[in-house]
Design a protein around this nucleic acid. Structure first.
Lengths: 239, 239
DNA sequence: CGATTAATGGAATGATTGTTATAGAATTCC
DNA sequence: GGAATTCTATAACAATCATTCCATTAATCG
């Protein structure tokens, strides 16, 4: 109950946050949506709510989206929102997962379905170009350029997205390491450096998409980036 | 005086903004700082105020920095701040100029001082890596990844930074066009595409710097990006 | 000197921020 | 059929948001 003001030197009073933790750390899927539970059933569709929240966070960012925005977009009252998602920060985490399971799954798809690593990267870049400039969703990437900077109070939310970006870099690097073993990449390839490079390209494409670059311009960036592929433009031998 | 609520469909009441325009559109330098004017002299140093504001906007972003933050960092009262800079949005514009005249002048410097275009791009990338990961200033680039998304009310501020990014892309493209004429770049070079590519690399480097990448990692990204230089890794003939 | 002009400090503006009591309504368990 | 449980709606919470009113102070111009 009492706000321990000892630990916090800053002047902004960060709200206490009582019920945050447990739900989000158990299972990423079934936090509160397992059917046929005890009390009064939920009257709104969680999936639809996440869609609406995704749209807002994507278009306006974390700090630019208020609870009031979310409430009116989803069409529920504040207590319902907090009962279902815990807090703005937790909802944001859920939305990121929702994105990565939907339009943001381009990297995972490409790496899983393409046996050739060069082809996987190429597909990842080109599909991203398509999504980032697509007319049906907000421009850019929800992950790549979300909350780059923020007020100290929102640091936690920023760290969540940052960890997703870092995760993508690691995923790329792991594949490149495997590709070195396969012979797809030269033995002396700096895999982390290469992963960072293609990660940077994606992030830059995302920002330029926000600034108005179309799919064609983004594909041009991707095309140029592929010229930096080790061993020349041609893909390495397929294992 | 009266808020014309016809044009604005959104629910958020955007503050009227009375005294915004004139000052900022005349001269980017002498808006209110020409010496020996009429009334009571200013008691704080504008330059120092801009430094403090720069630090804050750089570290926390536009939406993450409040007037209260700026007030206490600069050490002035709200009326003084508004008298000197007009509004948060105008102050932000001033800060961006301040940045481009200081630590953010890497692109302009490189292009002006390096006769070889490849060398200019290389220097731009490496110097940026140094600034983005430098310990003396906030990480990343104030321009590259600032306000990618925002609340509708802050669209104007976001457009200011976006125009700086677009300006950098145009500057790069112009230099590349010149380099094609010089013979430094192949005749069939898509100069806009190349400019977008190196712009994207810088933007990605900035984001990764925010995520914790050190100067060495950023230089690695730059090094890889230079391998995409048309005609191979070696610079073209010097004119 | 008196008038004008502009910056200052203190206090307040209305609106919006994220979040929560409180009470009522709808379901399952026993 | 209660008891327990969980969602919903109304209303409120304190804090913070960007901005401005007011009276005062300090300078220059005539």
């Amino acid at each position: 109950m009492s706000n321990n003001s000892i630990t916090n030197v800053k002047k902004k009073s960060i709200p206490p946050k009582r019920r945050q933790t447990l739900a989000s750390h158990l299972s990423p899927i079934t936090s509160r949506q397992s059917p046929s539970r005890r009390g009064r059933p939920r009257e709104f569709d969680q999936e639809h709510a996440l869609d609406q929240a995704l749209e807002l966070f994507w278009r306006q960012g974390y700090e630019g989206t208020s609870i009031a925005d979310l409430r009116s977009a989803i069409g529920i009252t504040a207590p319902s929102l907090y009962a279902a998602f815990g807090s703005k920060e937790e909802l944001y985490g859920r939305v990121l997962e929702h994105y990565l399971a939907g339009l943001g799954r381009t990297l995972a798809d490409a790496l899983r379905e393409e046996t050739n690593t060069y082809a996987a990267v190429k597909r990842f870049l080109l599909e991203s170009a398509h999504v980032f400039a697509g007319p049906k969703n907000p421009r850019g990437c929800l992950i790549s350029c979300a909350i780059p900077t923020c007020a100290p109070e929102n640091r936690a939310a920023a760290d969540i997205v940052a960890s997703k970006r870092t995760g993508s870099l690691l995923t790329l690097r792991n594949r490149f390491q495997q590709a070195v073993k396969n012979g797809e990449l030269p033995r002396d390839t700096n895999t982390e450096q290469l992963a960072r490079f293609y990660g940077a390209v994606i992030q830059g494409m995302s920002i330029q998409a926000l600034d108005g670059a179309g799919a064609k311009a983004l594909r041009g960036i991707a095309e140029t980036a592929l010229k930096a592929w080790p061993g020349g433009t041609r893909p390495g031998p397929v294992p």
